[in-house]
Amino acid sequence: MATTADLKKIILEFAESYKKSKFYFNDMVHEVQKTVPDAKQRDIKKASTELVNEGVLIFFSTGSTTMYGLKGRGITNDE
């Protein structure tokens, strides 16, 4: 059973290496589940929310859809 800290580490590695600077929640879940097959979506959400609250991840919203991104990668500043 992976801890939140483990999940955060996997999410961060994914966010740093993903081909695009923004990604959907589902992309993140599938990536985490490759490493931790029994990871629940709710636990992944908790881990990603912590990363958002720590200012490591950011939400990117068009109004209709929301994506996640790593702060500092791609467009991450208010423009």
Binding site: I58, F59, F60, I75, T76, E79
Partner: peptide, 12 residues
């Protein structure tokens, strides 16, 4: 359209 603006802790 869209961006990273929001309030702390909220994604919507």
């Amino acid at each position: 359209h869209g961006g990273i603006v929001g309030v702390f802790g909220y994604g919507g």
